[in-house]
Design a protein around this nucleic acid. Sequence first.
DNA 1: ATCGTTGCATGCAACGTTGCAATAGTCTTT
DNA 2: AAAGACTATTGCAACGTTGCATGCAACGAT
Lengths: 355, 355
Amino acid sequence: MVGASLKDVAMRAGVSVRTVSNVVNDFPQVAPETRRRVQQALEELQYRPNAAARLLRAGRSGLVGLVIPEIDSPYFGELASLLVQAAQQYGWTLLVDQTNGDPDRERLLLDGPPGQIVDGLVMSPWAVSPAELRRRADAVPLVLLGEQDAAGLIDHVSVDSVAAAAEATGHLIGLGRRRIAAIGVQPHLANGTAQQRITGYRQALRAAGIPHDPALEMPVTALHRADGARAMRELLEGGHAPDAVFCFSDQLALGALRAALDHGLAVPDDLAVCGFDDIEDGRYGTPSLTTVAPDKAGIAERALSCLADRLKRPPTGAGRRRDPEVPSGDAPPPARRIVAAHRLVVRESTVGRPG
Amino acid sequence: MVGASLKDVAMRAGVSVRTVSNVVNDFPQVAPETRRRVQQALEELQYRPNAAARLLRAGRSGLVGLVIPEIDSPYFGELASLLVQAAQQYGWTLLVDQTNGDPDRERLLLDGPPGQIVDGLVMSPWAVSPAELRRRADAVPLVLLGEQDAAGLIDHVSVDSVAAAAEATGHLIGLGRRRIAAIGVQPHLANGTAQQRITGYRQALRAAGIPHDPALEMPVTALHRADGARAMRELLEGGHAPDAVFCFSDQLALGALRAALDHGLAVPDDLAVCGFDDIEDGRYGTPSLTTVAPDKAGIAERALSCLADRLKRPPTGAGRRRDPEVPSGDAPPPARRIVAAHRLVVRESTVGRPG
DNA sequence: ATCGTTGCATGCAACGTTGCAATAGTCTTT
DNA sequence: AAAGACTATTGCAACGTTGCATGCAACGAT
């Protein structure tokens, strides 16, 4: 036996299928005695509504998807966890999927089973262009995370990466550092994160009158610890030893930190290190890591609030006419651009140990 | 417009709905000319098969679920990432959900939308008892991860935690340590992980003739860094200072490490630290962390291989009769218990820096 | 010329659910 | 007592898909 259906319950309770459905959905127009009988039958048969049929008929699954490049990156892991909890408050179940930054897979997830089954999607695009995302704007509601902008056509939540990078660089400058490297440049990536952070970095240098040295701007292929460590080794071995480094992610920073310590440098005395993301590892490492902390809980909350607004509109289920001749009276709400808060968290990797 | 259906395509191509379905599913019995015409219509209308309808009718969604207590724990993050990749090789899309160890949520995910929509589930149970999991054994195929055993009624993949813990403890003993603490005891948790690791720890002590000191077995409420740090501080302040510590997770170990360094201890000279899980943070920290490395890729691969075996059996869709009078001829394959490999990875936190 | 065979295309039904509209039954009102 | 108002319950249809059976040609073999 695979699971009782409304029909099975109806037969057992001696009522029609429709009445059982009314009980299940808590419609008021059911006599107490009938309700009781039906509920007992539901209980006895262990009825669970069939999610596929509900989705097909009503157009709503109660599921929301999160599409991120890497589940195992601490930043996305923490964000995913917060989104799961925020989704619960809306009565949704959040499901997470990983693209590994593969554009084909990003497309597949949007068009295929997960993208069709969920009521809404939160996505951190890596390689798929805004133009392509726009093309499917009238499918399931979508909220973008991250720096990539969809020309104001899709809801979008991010932090002000330019300002944040400038603050972080400014903090290093304020400590008296002058040879400040940047690790995390990714010139060939559509995703605008690295672009914005290098912009903020340069702005801060210019504002302080520090000449900008291209040899201190280190490219990486990914944002992992190994990439940060490699970039730091290149800096140290290339004779361009900096006195501070701003890394575009905490993972890069932790890798750079490790490489610097291996090289015999004292942190922060010889080298101040600042990251971006405020992941848990940075808080418990030795030395602990100064970083830019995006308001992750705020990002999660506001992304889902965008989805909630769009889901107030009727679903595309069986009832809804989808005749293009008669445009629906109320237009969809305009796309929002939300800028979440961030703050600089100063720890041992730039100011040394307190006490 | 929400998306073209088979009907729309059929009208445009001037054929029946059934023929379009035949083209979409690559059935051979279609004339080349017809196929061409239909394919063009498919292209023009950007047809995407409706996942909900397919699932309802055919009983297969192509989705597989992973249910874990915490997405943001590095161990589960790394495991999830490997499972996503392994699932791709089977042609499945893996979706991840998080329970936070809440038993109600574990049940909800199994019975509700995600559990019904996926073709199979991989789960790391935290609080739901084996008995309860057994109750639903004939629903969607399920594979359990972790130490909790379901009495051989459900497929199950784990490492030999007793042996692994004994090896780790044996390594510390082999370094000449005698006051070896254990951090991570969780007596009131159904989930058997902590039980097995403390068993292995005690076995190794006994085998070496070292008396077992209950004051060195530290309980924790969760497996996070903060818990490890707290336990270590208690050990150090309580006057029971150990010369080595075996932590039941790398996160605990990293917290303990940090607390020990804060306390002025030298690692590994004053205190050797060993963890469990081999998460990336441990590899790049300073000092790097000695740990038990479960074969995560092997766990992922074999969990999915179990699912694949069960999914060879016909789905419970429209075609399949589900008459309990006539039991299906072939019984389901018996539940498997798979023990994945592990190995001890020795790093700086127990043997100091090389060179 | 007739029969079976093969290749291609189609119609019907069903998966489990819910919106809509209609029915039967009860109670109030005049 | 009849008309109206309301309550409780039900039947029908449809969401988009696919399994099964059938239809309908055209073909070669007898």
